[in-house]
Design a protein around this nucleic acid. Structure first.
Lengths: 286, 286
DNA sequence: CGATACCTTGATTCGTTTCAATAATCGTGG
DNA sequence: CCACGATTATTGAAACGAATCAAGGTATCG
């Protein structure tokens, strides 16, 4: 449909490494507290006693398909995504897996284990990944000397809570088109935040995984993408997505039926009528 | 259908007060840290320096229909439910409200405000309520002297995160019957935990609010309750619910169609086949 | 190059929503 | 206390949207 633009590559590569946090030390990558904080987009500890510089966090690399943690595994650490793309899934009683999130750079992983000391979900690398290990014990003890850090941790968890609420809201109220549209907008926003193009990007997950995430079958996801393509709001070529009308996607509630579209080819969808106001209230992550 | 049994009354009353935490002091109710911890079902600070006994948290009463906090309001405190029944709602761009939770005794309220320092949801009393005010600042500073408290806070937030994940999972995969059944089981579990009957209880919310919570229309909720009643798994009389087959409800996936039910009146529903194993893995809150 | 996983599209079925009408319940003031 | 309107709940019929079933096409990987 359109040429394969240089889309953001989350794959590990010597080149991309330069823009990521971390430095070599006896063959391993390590990050200090300041780097971890900036990655999490939280204020770094104001006071930096000499001791603070010494705190280092080890990186670990995972290859595509590898599991970071599994359900039932004892909880010990949190993981911060330094690069790469993952999914977290729950497995219900019948073995069906449900995708809960698609963590990427600067996201925090593993919080679900704090409560019961065991992980209740599973995290899988969808591309080669570089994660920073944050032993939970280390984090809480650091919280004592750096009060901002502790507060920031609450903030991160609160943010995640709000994200999940938005998700619940979406699943509870939106149609298939609305869900797919929001999913795309959310991805676009996140890529933008990472410094990648918000117009063209590659989906790292399958239609099945998207469907699981937003509560639809893979066929419906595929059909909806085709429909959005047909009315010109997006470009679709397999896993490559081009956003052509972000604002329309942001406010989409319901698309005209295929029947109606046949008659009136102009894309006049049912969108939130006051579609012109600024989107400050829109949550950045879906 | 069945006599109006003495169902749990969450209304404030002089009698019920005796089993709740808190004591009088110049006309107001106050609770100390130990009471707050036991209410939250977290370990009380092991070491109890004399100073610890002095920490008191004020109670506030809200009457049915009153708002505890509204969207956009600056965040200052958390609230712990000592008695009563509430709902929290999000309002989407079009003004539709979506119910996010039905907090009751021992639940924590207001966590959504930590991240942005403003509340993103609204909490409303569905019955007269007694809440304990926990200034967030006070909590974090206490966390320094009582490390267990800080850890417990992470635990509570993590628990809430898991609850929301279970919710997302449900909305993404379950049919109407499954959702209603889970909702009832969850209520039953929570009433049991509070020391009330898990067999007979009063719904405090309307069908509309239930539907909003589990992503269905009020008509579907009503119909599904009728269907569950018809096959004898529950008793329904307006807001009074009697649980007659908790285990069946727990494992319900899909009900036979009305058509099929007409022919074979015996209640052989499609349940998870291995319905006999223990339910330890089942999350206590929906 | 072949096998496998993934995607697209169509036809049909099924479940839920929507629209509509009736009934029960609650709160309030005459 | 009862009548009243307002809110809430039940139930039916029809319309709609997404799931399911099915087939063919396309990328991907060893």
């Amino acid at each position: 449909m359109f040429a394969t633009h240089p889309t953001p590559s989350l794959q590990e590569s010597p080149h991309s490494l330069s823009r990521e946090a971390g430095r070599q030390k006896n063959g391993k990558l390590w990050s200090n507290l300041a780097e971890v904080c900036s990655l999490l987009r939280i204020p770094a500890p104001a006071a930096t006693p000499s001791a603070g510089e010494d705190v280092l966090f080890q990186h670990v690399q995972f290859k595509t398909g590898q599991r970071i943690h599994t359900i039932g595994q004892p909880f010990e650490m949190l993981y911060i995504v330094n690069s790469g793309f993952l999914k977290t899934v729950m497995i219900d009683e019948l073995g069906n897996e449900q995708v809960l999130s698609f963590p990427m750079k600067s996201d925090l992983l593993g919080v679900d284990g704090i409560h019961s000391r065991f992980h209740t979900s599973e995290a899988v690398a969808l591309s080669d990944c570089d994660l920073i290990l944050v032993p939970f014990k280390k984090l809480t003890s650091l919280g004592k000397t750096y009060p901002e850090l502790e507060h920031a941790m609450y903030g991160v968890m609160s943010r995640e809570l709000i994200r999940e609420q938005a998700m619940i809201c979406m699943l509870g109220t939106l149609s298939a088109e609305g869900r797919v549209a929001r999913f795309l907008v959310s991805l676009s926003d996140r890529f933008a935040q990472m410094g990648y193009s918000h117009r063209i990007f590659n989906l790292r997950m399958t239609r099945h995984e998207i469907g699981s995430y937003i509560g639809l079958t893979l066929e419906t996801v595929s059909r909806t993408l085709s429909a959005l393509h047909e009315i010109g709001w997006i470009g679709v070529d397999q896993k490559t997505i081009e956003i052509r009308d972000l604002n329309a996607l942001r406010h989409l509630r319901r698309l005209p039926t295929a029947r109606a579209r046949k008659e009136k080819k102009t894309a006049v969808a049912t969108i939130a009528s006051h579609a012109r106001h600024s989107d400050a209230a829109q949550p950045a992550t879906l």
